[in-house]
Design a protein around this nucleic acid. Structure first.
Lengths: 233, 233
DNA sequence: GCAAAAGTGTTCACGGTACACCCATGA
DNA sequence: TCATGGGTGTACCGTGAACACTTTTGC
């Protein structure tokens, strides 16, 4: 070890700080998330969440965006902080805490997945068929899944899972896939429309071999919490 | 091997990791929180949240308990993680991120407040009359207040603000003080009792100059999320 | 005309809210 | 007997859930 390290150690012995990102996306009517295959030790060749170290003067969120793009090529997504995992033994290399981020990609959006030195492979996995995961990433994912389900029901976060224009059936399908349950079509439409979060646009979807559906778009340009739960964030 | 050392070197360039604690308690029918007057620079003599550095191999929650006790003498409280604040310029000494914790003390509980070298003074402040605060602590407190209001309505977290035995009026008062609004007595009782979270015990409160009230206690030994919101955590 | 998804209303149960009076005790 | 907080019930409204048929298009 160099002298520099020694000095730093004396000043403040602080844990390493990292970010990990759980990126969800609905693909083929399935809720999927993005994983990388680790190209380096520890857990080499095992699947893990994209993530890495926070730079000395880098905002946490920026580190999350950067690591995601470096390791997977993904950018332009919705991102919010999830929870900070700090178990002293969660990383075999030594103490490291991870600020986990929760991210959503638009259903239609094409990502140009690319791998990197430390991410030998990148791929989408159904949340129902996850491989064994490195570190405590399984725990982080479970937490993210709960957050996603909750936010879908009590916020307009679905906007980040859908393209600008969509049909009510597509919206409903998104809810069903994420929540893992069937929803009554009439009740769903009534409720969603009553919330005034989406509005119909003049166009209809064309060239479908059945009655052309109305296209809708989200009204507000930002993410909202519905009713009293505005208190949460 | 050389490579390994190189990685270590990079890792050392990590932000400092700290914890801050927002401890709430109801005193004299007012929602208060615990602050320290800083005994050291920066922000010397200014009021701030209790908190400090996380030790190299210390769990985050443990660091929060430790710092709180060291700086204020307070122990045996309810604690949960709130949010991680990581703005690069939040600390004038240089990059530091803070994992904020949210804590609750029992209304009757006596704390032996004591000051320390870095906490020259310790005191409770009404959330409505807070002094100017060091760092971004005002922001952290606002966030904690929202979390508290929300959790009070959708979880049984009130258990941590009250002593083992309490009257329904005391419970209602706690809700009113935290939420900052009057609640109808009959509706409150109906709702609370219907939730089956509390049960009456045989004893009544004695030596009061009016009809002696029934004493109640929380049923479950742990903290719960009510109804569908079990999804959140 | 048929396949395929779009679109549409009513009924019922339950939880939230508004609202006012009598009760038990100590002084 | 009075002052003080304790304790109780009913009526109304809005939201959530259950449930089935007609419509519009492309082929």
């Amino acid at each position: 070890m160099t002298k520099k390290i020694k000095i730093k150690k004396e000043i403040i012995e602080t844990p390493r700080l990292m970010v990990d990102i759980v990126l969800f996306k609905v693909i083929d009517n399935t809720l999927k998330l993005l994983l990388i295959r680790r190209g380096v030790k520890p857990f080499k060749n095992m699947w893990a969440l994209p993530g890495g170290h926070v730079d000395k003067n880098e905002a946490l969120e920026k580190a999350a965006f950067r690591e995601l793009e470096e390791e997977t090529g993904v950018k332009n997504i919705y991102l919010e902080q999830l929870y900070t995992f700090g178990d002293p033994y969660r990383d075999p290399r030594g103490r490291a805490i991870s600020v986990a981020y929760f991210a959503l990609g638009e259903s239609g959006q094409k990502f140009h997945l690319k791998s990197a030195t430390d991410a030998a492979e990148v791929d989408w996995f159904s949340v129902k068929k996850l491989p064994r995961l490195a570190f405590d990433h399984k725990k982080i994912i479970n937490y993210a899944l709960k957050r996603l389900c909750w936010k879908l029901e009590y916020t307009n976060i679905a906007r980040n899972l859908l393209p600008k224009l969509f049909t009510l059936s597509e919206l409903q399908k998104t809810y069903e896939v994420v929540l893992g349950k069937k929803i009554d079509k009439r009740n769903f439409r009534k409720k969603i429309v009553a919330l005034n979060l989406i509005k119909p646009i003049k166009k209809q979807k064309k060239n479908v071999a059945y009655r052309p559906p109305q296209l809708w778009t989200f009204v507000a340009g930002k993410n909202l919490i519905l009713d009293k739960r505005e208190l949460i964030f």
